[in-house]
Amino acid sequence: MIVAEHLTKKYPTRAGPPHWVLRDVNFTIPPRLSVGILGKNGAGKSTLLRIIAGTDHPTSGMVRRDVRVSWPVGFGGGLQGSLTGRQNAKFVCRIQGRESEADEIMQRMQDFAEIGTAFDEPVKTYSSGMKARLQFAMSLAFEFDVYISDEVTAVGDANFRKKALAHFQSLVGKAGLIMVSHNEQTLKDYCKAGLLLHEGQAYWYDEIGDAIDAYKAKSAT
């Protein structure tokens, strides 16, 4: 379960008055539920996601987590170009404290990414598609209670996208997903509930369809 209590985040601005991204936001995400976060550009979706993932601090308030939360699925900044896919993968196994099972986990990554022998080549030689596949596989090879995704579920070619979707659907009931996306279809495919961010406030919807409708109504006004 992830509980946000009186979550507030503001950024200083040059003009003087701070920019309030989140203002006293409260919500509870039950275990194993997939939630889509909606909102306009700059509404604070990514900020909220980072706070949930524990890599950003709120100005006040807090997020309580009693589950293992992933890093953003498909996150790629951490790849060191001159190291091989395997070396990068091993690094992630180590920081996750799973070094003893690293071989197994890396086998899963290799199978999922389907990049063949390139796994043992330096990452800088990868095409962008191969890189995306590796990044995706790196996240999914670990069993988290909640996966986090920021606009990157649509990577790779059509086949790979299908595989990724199938993988997430196989996780339904086993793990939760919190994702940010502007794509209506993606949200409907992946998510059950919705959280709409609008002018610093968060609105919870049990059905993603309702959240999308509300989002459209809010952005129309």
Partner: peptide, 21 residues
């Protein structure tokens, strides 16, 4: 425990890069 495994991971990664990058 987390800190030590992170240190080990970072040290090996950084060393591999510095020596053979």
């Amino acid at each position: 425990h987390i800190m030590l495994s992170v240190w080990k991971a970072l040290l090996l990664r950084e060393a591999t890069f510095r020596l053979f990058g």
